[in-house]
Design a protein around this nucleic acid. Sequence first.
DNA 1: GCGCGAGGCTTAGAAAATCTCAGTCTACCG
DNA 2: CGGTAGACTGAGATTTTCTAAGCCTCGCGC
Lengths: 191, 191
Amino acid sequence: MTYRFPSLNGLKAFEAAARHLSFKAAAAELGVTAGAVSQQVKRLEMSLGISLFRRLPQGLLLTPEGAVYLPEVSRAFDVLTDATEAVAPALNGRKLSLGIDPVVAERLPKGWPRHSKELDPYIRETRSTNDVELIWSNELDALLLAAKTRHGALSERAICLSGSAAPVYFVTRPGLAECRQSRAIREALDA
Amino acid sequence: MTYRFPSLNGLKAFEAAARHLSFKAAAAELGVTAGAVSQQVKRLEMSLGISLFRRLPQGLLLTPEGAVYLPEVSRAFDVLTDATEAVAPALNGRKLSLGIDPVVAERLPKGWPRHSKELDPYIRETRSTNDVELIWSNELDALLLAAKTRHGALSERAICLSGSAAPVYFVTRPGLAECRQSRAIREALDA
DNA sequence: GCGCGAGGCTTAGAAAATCTCAGTCTACCG
DNA sequence: CGGTAGACTGAGATTTTCTAAGCCTCGCGC
């Protein structure tokens, strides 16, 4: 009564789909099927009485309303996530666990990213490994590899390190490549 | 994955219970049973791995963690509610519908609260009526009455109008008496 | 001291919400 | 033209949330 807003599940689905402009990618990030995301967003739109997306055969476009809603919803989620982490540090779930190929580690500042204040909010732990299987088994969220790898449906982004000709590869589970943590890590490496 | 926080339902239950320091009052506000609130909060605490309340035989006390969490959760809900209202004005549900006894209206500034900028965020509509039944039938959220009335389980707060000896009575559905809208209305009348 | 009422706790089952699966549709590309 | 990608939809499975009823402790009044 005091607060009126639709189901958080619907908002989660909307927010992820809006970021990716794709129900499929949002589904991968949320760990559900694309059908579930589609139904959730549709339910949300019906409860609000507006359209949030224009559907294309191969993806989505935000409506003006959707474009207005997205940053606010993201902001509220940030507040909740920060508050939740503050009271329940054990959760710490928003930070990525990152595997670093030893070959890559040699080309990075010693001990990176241990002393990086800017990456501390985004990286929970690092491990020295290049085993892609750890991503599939959910033991790692992301990997920094020295070479392209046969990675199935994993996302891969090439990063050019300064002072080096050969790129390194940032590999994540589907849907994680464009989240804030991943972007922050890539930006830090671009510098 | 990008965002980690517990179910909104649990957070809703926590936030209302923390404001009221009572599962029973929170249940009335949320329109569910006290058992449901109790279960939701317990599930939330288990998922976070912390206690948010100390239970007393006749109510609740916030733990330090609970006290830290509450304002942040309220803030996130405000953001979501404001954003939802902005994109879906038809919802407008956060504003109260207020009935005003004609006898009371005579003692208020002419047309109150029509031109009140400060109350605009809190009052959706007003009707000239003193029929308490409209609250029970969910047609009104609150009433301003000239006299105490037999109101069963409704909440009633006396308000002293300036320049007047006899108080008026602000009556709401159980659980709504201390919400922000109600408080704002009462404060405006106290002036 | 006893009885009553208030309010939190718990359980079992009902009801509602959410998910999966499988198939349909449209658009794009080779 | 055929294949692929991705959004849409419906039925049923699964999970979450709710209700009702009873239990417990505490405080108050007689």
